[in-house]
Design a protein around this nucleic acid. Structure first.
Lengths: 190, 190
DNA sequence: CGTTGGCTTGAGAGGGCTCAAGGCCAGTGG
DNA sequence: CCACTGGCCTTGAGCCCTCTCAAGCCAACG
């Protein structure tokens, strides 16, 4: 189970065996059933999740009462609500499993402890965060530069058959359009 | 000149005097005139900028030949094109001064050297990056959840009179609308 | 096998765009 | 020091992309 994570960690920073063992000792393997919540709105997010297998989505209900997906998390991603996790403030979003999902949980207190004990993990999490930031910037570019149809086409191109694993209404809101319009786009492309 | 940066650094991580001196020794004070480029598209971004005073904007020309501002940088911000800087790949955007702008420049090679010599800076840049990421996430929320008018009102509320320091057509593209429409919105709000 | 949630289809409406023209400075050169 | 010019902002008309609302369909699940 830790093998997946080990190869992931070593891709960015080289860790010694004892450092890895200490890190792994802080992780709690957990399984969430489909539709189960990893984090609920208003809670303070005290966990960093490494997804071993499955899919989650970040979502919240906006001012007009519509559910809006802001992000997906899949296999081999570290995910958390950064704002809530870092600042220990109430979350403005839910994190919910879209499939049965296996994760490794790192508590905020363990996270802080690891960073103090093994500075290399500062490096590791800096790099992870940089990648998340770069992805976020690309998302903004897509939202502002591409038409809805282009965003859809691009999503399919980049993620392959991932779209078949998620409810279409979540994808619509992720792409920033209505389910009806996404449906129309799909019909046009056939 | 380094006093501003010193108080900024110590806000996030406590540094010893000698660590700060080493860090400062790596920085190159520079002034860019209004309209001068800090980075041009296609160049590899090899510099991290700390803005002491002034304003810059990140922009590029999109497929339809329109200039698009993706981000502003102001006093006391660390800015760079992360994607280009981290991966040492050609930049897809320009960084250009909107006013005469004083910066401290940190080269990629110095950046790498500092991180190796003083691991505390890993912590510092992790925290900086987390903040940039959180801001980026909030920007996505605004783009997807708010109307153009709400985005404008919100921008004014959050930045005060900053809007008066920048050309309105750059703000229009930052808010993801046309200059004409932004002009209409402003007229409506009087 | 009925119910419920998600997807599709279609009509009508509107937010924001395009295109075009006019006005208002700020900067430049004579 | 003034006239000129080019860039930026404004205003308006017409249009289109995407939304809202409504109805029907289908698959999954109790």
């Amino acid at each position: 189970m830790f093998e997946i994570l080990k190869s992931y960690l070593n891709r960015y920073v080289h860790f010694e065996e004892n450092e890895l063992l200490f890190f792994f000792s802080q992780l709690k393997p957990t399984v969430y059933q489909k539709k189960e919540f990893l984090l609920k709105k208003e809670q303070i997010c005290s966990q960093y999740f490494f997804i071993l297998k499955g899919v989650v989505h970040f979502h919240h209900t906006n001012a007009n009462g519509k559910e809006h997906t802001t992000m997906y998390g899949i296999d081999k991603w570290w995910v958390t609500n950064y704002d809530s996790f870092i600042h220990q403030t109430p979350s403005n979003i839910n994190i919910q499993a879209l499939e049965d999902t296996e994760v490794l949980i790192l508590d905020k207190s363990s996270f802080d402890k690891i960073l103090i004990n093994i500075p290399k993990f500062e490096r590791f999490f800096r790099i992870i965060t940089e990648k998340a930031y770069i992805a976020s910037q690309r998302r903004i570019e897509h939202l502002t530069q591409l038409s809805t149809e282009e965003r859809y086409t691009n999503f399919i191109k980049e993620t392959g058959n991932f779209a078949q694993r998620i409810p279409q209404y979540t994808l619509a809101s992720y792409l920033n359009c209505t389910p009806e319009f996404l449906s129309t786009i799909k019909a046009l492309k056939k």
